[in-house]
Amino acid sequence: MVLVFAEQNQGVFKKSALEAVSYAASVAAASGTEAHAIVLGTCQDAAALGQYGATKVYHLNDERLNHLEAKAYAKAIGQLATEAGAKVIVFSNNNTAKAVAPRVSARLKAGLVAGAIALPDMNNGFVVKKAVFSGKAFSFVKINTEIKVISLTPNSFGLIKVDGQAEVILKTANFTDSDFAVKVESVQTVSGIVPLGEAELVVSGGRGLKGPENWGILEDLASAVGATLACSRPVADSHWRPHHEHVGQTGGTIRPNLYIAVGISGAIQHLAGVNSSKTIVVINKDAEAPFFKAADYGVLGDAFEVVPRLTEAIKKFKAAQHA
């Protein structure tokens, strides 16, 4: 059986969680078995995971699990994996999984590939492809243990919808107080925006924009496209933008379908975080900017003229589509 952790927030599954379920279902199909999901915390609609290929959903309906507590999550997932006989355990490699998947791996002494970008190759052992050197290369990692843990990079597999309902089975775990040692004092969420790590469309700005007061044109473009904002490191370092928007070797590594880079030179450390994007558009007024070499489409021009024009063109296109 392939067990997949489907993360949810107030009963809503993130797209990346559904992607992980789709991935788990494909791994299960390739090894002639079923995919079962595990859901932690309050959730009304766990059965919906059947539409992405899970045949069973184990639901730990325990309020204490409504917030991430790495120790408790790992215990719950580890215990269930053992009890239900999981051979492969799948996560979506976001900040939650980074806290939990390695703990499950250590707990079960089951080899982990963190940041998988493709289905495992099971022809010759169990080999999983992942990005290394911050996106400058890939590696093929063989898992040597009987139980395997895979944490899938968001946006690297896609959703596969099927016609199915899953059977929901309520479960409990043997928690102790020490499993909940970390107390959540407060949460500040940026609502309504797709988190950068999961975003399919990203608009990013660099020092070429001159100052934070000029970000309006990028915000307009992002909202026309439906994109999430990102930035280069000096932009975050100068506090023009919040640091969670910083991408690159020392910031986030992302692989959206579309990355629009405005006023970013394309330094190797910046490219490291974004060059796995499927399509890259570069807007820069310097023909020698190294970013053009890594781009699919380039616009040589002044961002302050080009970006508003692009925003208008997108709006026109969207209006025509909806007409």
């Binding site: 996106g135 040597n144 796995s276």
Partner: peptide
């Protein structure tokens, strides 16, 4: 628990349009 078998470079971009 794991071993790296080999590495691969990302595919070259076709060139900017």
């Amino acid at each position: 628990l794991t071993s790296t078998i080999s590495y691969e470079m990302p595919p070259q971009k076709a060139g900017v349009k």
